[in-house]
Amino acid sequence: MNAAADNQDLQELYRELILDHARKPRNFGRLDAATHSAEGINPLCGDKLRLYLRIDSNDRIAGVSFEGSGCAISLASASLLTEAVSNLPVADADACFSTVTRRLTRQPENPAATTTANLSKLKALDGVRDHPSRIKCATLAWHALHAALHQQSQATTE
């Protein structure tokens, strides 16, 4: 790889959208009326975040937030997650988990997991697919979402 191509690769990974969400994470902080929450831990790098959900009586995600610390990739992914799953039915949000984690790890889509959610912004994370050591940063929040939806208290990327 020459230096110019490498620069392009870096820009692919740290797109403006990623940097923006990392600098100003959306829905950041504790959710007081949360009904579900789970912690995501990446033991390899010590990244740690907690995802909060408020699921209403119609099984819809009425509130979502996260807090914690991590690299730009994990913060941006968590921030984008909160935007993507807000107001989604629980089953839809679960399908998002499947779709996003499969795409980031280059697995074929699961035809059973369909979602009406708009995941187009999440394509900004696709750059990590060429960085094996960083894929777990991008999937951390999604594993926490999955754990929270399934009433588990903790998810790790290991």
């Binding site: 690769d9 790098c45 690299c71 050591s133």
Partner: peptide, 22 residues
């Protein structure tokens, strides 16, 4: 306020290997 992992990745892109994390 750049997270160490981001530093590690950007440095690796330039052929510089450092350790990041705890």
């Amino acid at each position: 306020d750049i997270h160490p992992h981001d530093l590690g990745t950007i440095l690796d892109h330039q052929g510089v290997a450092i350790r990041t994390g705890h």
